[in-house]
Design a protein around this nucleic acid. Structure first.
Lengths: 113, 113
DNA sequence: ATCGTTTATCGCCGATGGACGATGAGTGAC
DNA sequence: GTCACTCATCGTCCATCGGCGATAAACGAT
């Protein structure tokens, strides 16, 4: 009944905009410097197994695996098991989509001025 | 000595790229649905005092104040005390800058393919 | 079968985030 | 002055994040 976007801490799922929650969730996956660096590394490399990322950064294997999992769950990185390795690759379309969402948000904010 | 981007959990401050930490920090400010909605509201309104935001969303005044503070500290919203009110306004330039940073990141990732 | 490698997951822990209510300061109206 | 209103901040609570080491599973090689 309320016309407010929140109902006790939860956003309404109005069928209108790209849903602030979805945008926020994907931005959250990008809001950690390690994950940004990992994304850059994935884009520069083509092997992209977990171990390679671990070798490149001073982070424990478990930590890297966790970051990769977050990126995969956010849909920004695709995962494909390959023998005993795990192949991680950037989902360029998804990444472009996030960028577009943010640009759209910014534009909507600027149009209101 | 290390050529790795991290040195025991801290990013090197290489004088090169837009610094993943800075980008991550600003994206973190955007990675909460309430703050996205608040930004949208600020862009659609021109009064933009804290109370108005409180009235619009089902959030406690202290919670809204905290969200606004985060947006201000991230440099995305400008703050100006006005009598007993507090005037909040979107910093369009900063917002555009964040969007540009993300776009640049995405582009750099796509160029590497 | 055994070893080495790679990976995901678990448990733990300190730090942070996000919500709230309560409080106090500041302002305007009376 | 007092009252009402607005706001920032404090303290508290709980959940999540982000790091690590340890462990177990899966696979390749010997």
């Amino acid at each position: 009944m309320s016309d407010k976007p929140f109902e006790t801490h939860r956003l309404r799922s109005t069928s209108e905009a790209p849903d602030s929650r979805a945008v926020a969730a994907r931005l959250a996956a990008l809001s950690h410097p390690a994950r940004i660096e990992i994304l850059k590394h994935l884009s520069a490399s083509n092997s992209c197994c977990c171990r390679e990322v671990v070798d490149r950064f001073d982070l424990a294997q478990s930590t890297v695996s966790q970051h990769l999992k977050i990126l995969v769950e956010a849909g920004l990185v695709r995962f494909e098991p390959d023998r005993q390795r795990s192949r991680y690759a950037i989902d360029h379309a998804a990444l472009a989509d996030v960028s577009a969402s943010l640009t759209a948000l910014v534009n909507s904010c600027c149009s209101g001025r």
